[in-house]
Design a protein around this nucleic acid. Sequence first.
RNA 1: GCGACCGUAGCUCAGCUGGUUAGAGCACCGGUUUGUGGUACCGGGGGUCGCGGGUUCAAGUCCCGUCGGUCGCCCCA
Length: 430
Amino acid sequence: MTRSSPPRPIKGTQSLYGEPAERFHHVIDCFDRVRRLYGFRRVEVPVFEATGVFARTMGETTDVVSKEMWSFESRSEGSVTLRPEFTAGIARAFLSEGWQQHVPMKVAVHGPAFRYERPQKGRYRQFHQLDAEVIGSDDPLVDVELLAFGAQLLEELGIEGVTLRLNTLGDAQSRDNWRAALIEHFSAHRDELSEDSRDRLERNPLRILDSKDPRDRPFAQSAPTMQLSSEAEDFFGQVRAGLDAAGIAYQLDPHLVRGLDYYRHTAFEFVTDRLGAQGTVLAGGRYDGLIEALGGPHVPAVGWAAGIERLAMLLDRDVSERIEAAILPMGEEARLAAIHAATRLRAEGISAEIFASGKLGKRMSRADQAGALAAIVIGEEEVTSGQYQYKHLASGEQRALDMEAIIDALVDEAAERDLSSFEADLGDHD
RNA sequence: GCGACCGUAGCUCAGCUGGUUAGAGCACCGGUUUGUGGUACCGGGGGUCGCGGGUUCAAGUCCCGUCGGUCGCCCCA
């Protein structure tokens, strides 16, 4: 029989173990903690939807629909698409599940999302997002709260060197006028633009503003700026005043744009220079026109999303998990005593792992690698006496103690270690 | 979809202008120390040099193809 070659992972997917997996979940844990501070409720939506849910919200940008979505034919449902983001699915649920009754609705989710594109740094085909949305409010205070949520998340993760870029896209009227003015401006210099930008002039003229091509820069610099209506001006003013009141620093960036028509007012991105070409770490904005684009009523909304992998890459703090107690049973007699001891420790909230095989020295070093505070050695003598060898690994000190004393010692040790790592975290925030 | 670079041990990589038994560090296992870790010393297992073809007396090294990876462009909802 010929041996078949082992299966390969699908391009752009990843499997994590150990420290990388712990960083990944640290991001999620932190998100979930901060979410509660802001009163965002949990929500769950399907991993896939009818293709139309995503295609309709994409408007005319056919490149994305044809090239970037991960779609396939279902036996009974026609074309379905793995979610490329959360917003469209949440909006669909808002309409089909009767969630209008909960307005204004503050929700948060996290989970996998899929885009069929070429993987590169911080960009995968299956990736994972944190997502926060507020549906059904046109109050600029909500924009401020949402931004504050994002800012505090990054702060608590201890990610440094991130700046918030902020812009307004105005209301529908000022946006349309601006778009027309930009087309006029760039058309006048059509032949001097890069090939890509000539193409963008047809499909997505706003994108020329943040073109990387040096040939486009002079024209981007001299492009007309948006003339805001007084209402739009007022809205943006309230967002900025709110950010100041919340103590959140930002940089105005008039070139920060969104191609799709349903975006209004606030647009923002938290960016870092530490991730190469994929520097956006958390981004969002107000999408007052999206629910209408899905065939619903006019419902204003604002939200953001952040890539978990990117955030995990930026963590410089050590977040590896450490066990508290390592139990080392020597010989047949001790195995049941070890199970009993582990049960008691865990019932007290102390993490415990049994290392039952190998030489004692080997087990000691495994206990050490697992980050154990103490090793508990149980052999024949210990089983009969009920006095176990309790070895504090950092100091090397060893004593014979009964289970009660061991529990007391470990509770104290664990509390002390938790406190010192908490203080280390605080230190990172300076 | 386009471009550049890279594929050698489980991991990170060295291997100069082709030359005979393909190396190092880390990890793993064993010993110095039959029930005591982090350090040190000694030893050990492990490699179709991604795959296929070509050039050559000789290919890990050069050429072509192919598969895979990385980074960038496009796109970024």
